[in-house]
Each structure stands twice: as structure tokens, then as C-alpha cells.
């Protein structure tokens, strides 16, 4: 819904912040995709899945998610009180 009174275009800083919010929103979606990915890997013929490599992959994805969230977190809170959200870009 269009809310009247909000600017259509933003300055550089608020614009960057909006894009960081977009990134924060997409992060769990990418995370979910990567964590569900092992389901698509077919195990080798006649045996179970390889515990070692699967575990390595899962822990790497997990660490990656933590790292990206760590990068995004400070800038999302820093300006929250100045910008109550609103328009899109």
C-alpha cells in the first residue's frame, strides 16, 4: 500500500541501509536453501552418506551464516531510531 508523504527516492546513506535490510531479509532464505541442499546429493551406490564431508559442509554453511549476520548487524541497529522504515528506495 502506498503511504503518502514518504519520499520516493533516498539519499546515499538511507539507501545503503535499505539495501542492507534487503540483505538481512534474504539471508535466511539463502541459508535455508544451502542447508537443504544435502538432500539433493545422492549417496554413493550401495552405501550411506559420508558423515565427514556432509558435516564439513553443514558447519561451513553455518559459520558463513554467522559471519554474514555479524557483518550486517551493527549497521542495522545504528540508525534504527532515526529511520522508522517506510518507502522502498
Amino acid at each position: 500500500m502506498k503511504r503518502p508523504g514518504l519520499p520516493l527516492f533516498l539519499q546515499r546513506r538511507p539507501y545503503r541501509r535499505r539495501r542492507k535490510i534487503d540483505a538481512a531479509r534474504l539471508l535466511p532464505v539463502f541459508g535455508a536453501f544451502l542447508l537443504l541442499l544435502p538432500m539433493l546429493w545422492a549417496p554413493p551406490e550401495g552405501q550411506g552418506r559420508d558423515t565427514g564431508s556432509d558435516g564439513l559442509f553443514l558447519f561451513l554453511v553455518w559459520a558463513g551464516l554467522i559471519a554474514v549476520a555479524r557483518l550486517l548487524a551493527p549497521s542495522l541497529t545504528a540508525e534504527e531510531h532515526r529511520d522508522p522504515g517506510g518507502g522502498d528506495g
Binding site: A24, L27, P28, G31, R49, T51, L65, A69
Partner: peptide, 21 residues
């Protein structure tokens, strides 16, 4: 069940990483 135990902690990870939602 091998790595299946991790699912219990991966769900909350996604929720917290996606805290903006």
C-alpha cells in the same frame, strides 16, 4: 541418526539470522 541432531539447532539459526522478519 548422524547429523540429524543438528536440525534442532539449524532451525533457530535461520530464525535468528532472519531476525528482521
Amino acid at each position: 541418526s548422524g547429523w540429524e541432531f543438528m536440525t534442532i539447532y539449524l532451525g533457530p539459526t535461520l530464525v535468528f539470522v532472519g531476525w528482521w522478519w
